[in-house]
Design a protein around this nucleic acid. Structure first.
Lengths: 145, 145
DNA sequence: ATCAGTGCAAACGATTTGCACCTCG
DNA sequence: CGAGGTGCAAATCGTTTGCACTGAT
């Protein structure tokens, strides 16, 4: 089992109070299987412990975490929902199904062995975001039948 | 010179009334150098002719255009602003400066010669979206000095 | 003449903010 | 104790909607 369960000590932002609210948000995000919206995080916490936090607090925490570089914020197309993801070392890209709107994580980054830098001209590239669109296995099947 | 100036006739959606409002939105988008938000389009039209259109009309027109496949809607990170782009044949990717938030169009698509499909596993890829982050020429210079 | 398209104002959802209170360090 | 964090309610922002009217076909 993992042991990142509310242990107050390790690996936390200097100059950040480690409140229960923040622990909970961290906890949810660290265990999330995919990027979550502020509201989803809020509801998840409510479901688990009816903590009665203010939604605005969740937003403020997410903003704080983002500024410290602990989470990254992004917005997927289709629905333009804003979602947050805990920054683990690696980054993940997603394929979005145009039919059922399922989100599938790519096994690897297509740029691992490609030099993006050369394409950007006089621009210093420090990061990138990639989304694929198309049809997932299931929806593709349905289209054929 | 191009001749796409409000000529009522050519290349328009079947079953779409070609109203002045729609002509204007089309006109602005077709000449835009980069993706624009609904509000930007609205303001641009106001600036040019104080037409007094309702903002909601712009939104409805953009939605209609999108449904017909004439424009594509997307949302860039940083600010999660929703922007619209007239669909010319090719697609463009952008590099976003983390410092000044300028948006720089990439000269080419890095995937032109790369097979994305293989990376997506059991997912049929029909399109993609790519954003680069980093620092533009000017901001890079400032960082050094 | 008809029905799609429009203007207006009100409704909406997501996010932000001001302010008084609370609590971690 | 004091700065930073929180709850609450109100404000804001971008976008959508209902309805009566107008104009393109």
């Amino acid at each position: 089992m993992h042991n990142h369960v509310c242990d107050t000590t390790t690996s936390y932002p200097a100059g950040m109070k480690w409140t229960k609210q923040r622990k909970d948000v961290y906890h949810v995000l660290a265990h999330a299987h995919e990027p979550m919206s502020a509201v989803q995080i809020y509801q998840q916490i409510e479901k688990e412990e009816s903590a009665g936090y203010a939604l605005s607090t969740i937003y403020r925490i997410l903003t704080a975490f983002e500024e410290k570089g602990y989470v990254s914020k992004s917005t997927f197309m289709g629905d333009g929902t804003v979602v947050y993801e805990w920054n683990k070392g690696e980054h993940t890209h997603y394929a979005l199904c145009l039919s059922c709107h399922k989100r599938v994580a790519l096994p690897s980054c297509p740029f691992e062995h490609v030099h993006l830098e050369s394409d950007a001209g006089d621009f210093t590239v420090t990061g990138h975001k990639l989304e694929l669109y198309g049809y997932c296995k299931d929806c593709e099947k349905q289209k054929l039948s």
